[in-house]
């Protein structure tokens, strides 16, 4: 039962990541491979504030969201100029640079040694220490993110970013400065990803750079593509499926040494098969 709760918490975290990336990739059509960078900024800022400064978890999360958005703003100023494949490659580049900072700016992040002993959240005196209450909290955040995403998508802002996805040149003719919208959605996506980062940090109580590598960005991309581009429900399906998949594989009984690689192989095959036969994903409205 406890292990099941563990999986559910992971589902909530990846669900949030999936939703945030879908806003950028699915709705705006920008292939960003930098998700893990903002996930990581959120995790590290939260962890540092909790461990070094004894802050309240929710306040720390707030700061983490702002920090992540700020980093996204800086990167986005450069990134938003590009389109298509160059956007993807440049975002990959930024992802690597940020990962490098996590790994090497040891004075702040402690490098590969990581940050241990991250405390669990304290909600007005009640410590959310056991797994079940943590799950409840995570699901609450997931719901919040879902509602916010839906709001964005249904607003006129949402229509604008969809228009950018369909034909960026055309929308410029109508007086919309596409670059501003691309920047804004990128920043919003990064802020949401930071929420997931904060949840992750306090849950596992230990973070190190390895979680926030390019591979992780690819994993979240797989969630979004599988679930369906521009489908919020799809991202939740994608997250649930890909979180459960390793457990099913474990059930099949691959020896431990192979299990991790098998998982990677399955993700890869999934991406290829999806591109070949269903590029819009399970419930998506858009194909890349």
């Amino acid at each position: 039962m406890d292990y099941f709760i563990h999986l559910a918490i992971l589902f909530a975290i990846y669900g949030i990541l999936g939703l945030s990336l879908n806003l950028v990739v699915g709705y705006t059509g920008l292939l960003s491979v930098a998700e893990a960078a903002f996930y990581g900024v959120g995790a590290y800022v939260t962890a540092l504030l909790l461990v070094n400064a004894g802050w309240n978890f929710f306040a720390a999360m707030g700061v983490a969201v702002i920090a992540s958005a700020a980093v996204a703003l800086v990167i986005g100023l450069v990134l938003s100029r590009f389109g298509g494949d160059y956007y993807a490659l440049a975002s990959l580049g930024f992802g690597v640079i940020i990962y490098s900072i996590f790994l090497n700016w040891q004075a702040v992040t402690n490098g590969p040694l990581g940050i241990p002993a991250i405390p669990r959240p304290d909600f007005f005196g009640y410590v959310i220490g056991d797994e079940a209450s943590y799950l409840v909290m995570s699901l609450v955040f997931l719901l919040l993110v879902y509602v916010v995403s839906r709001f964005i998508v249904r607003s006129s802002f949402g229509r604008a970013i969809r228009a950018i996805r369909e034909d960026e040149a055309a929308i410029q003719v109508f007086g919309y400065r596409a670059i501003n919208y691309k920047l804004l959605i990128f920043v919003i996506g990064a802020g949401i990803a930071a929420i997931a980062g904060a949840l992750y940090a306090s849950y596992i109580t230990y973070i190190d750079p390895s979680t926030f590598s390019v591979n992780e960005s690819i994993f979240v991309l797989a969630i979004v593509i599988l679930g369906g581009l521009a489908s919020l429900r799809g991202s939740l399906f994608g997250a649930a499926f890909l979180v459960l998949l390793p457990e099913l594989l474990r059930f099949v009984g691959f020896p431990d040494t192979i299990a991790a690689q098998m998982r990677q192989a399955v993700y890869g095959v999934l991406l290829v098969v999806l591109m070949l036969y269903r590029p819009e994903g399970l419930t998506g409205e858009y194909r890349l």
């Binding site: 494949d85 993807a88 593509i225 991406l271 999806l274 591109m275 194909r287 890349l288």
Partner: peptide, 15 residues
């Protein structure tokens, strides 16, 4: 589109 090919090639690489 080229982006689809890019994503597919990413999948191939991983496998």
């Amino acid at each position: 589109s080229n982006t689809v090919l890019l994503v597919a090639s990413l999948g191939v690489f991983t496998v």
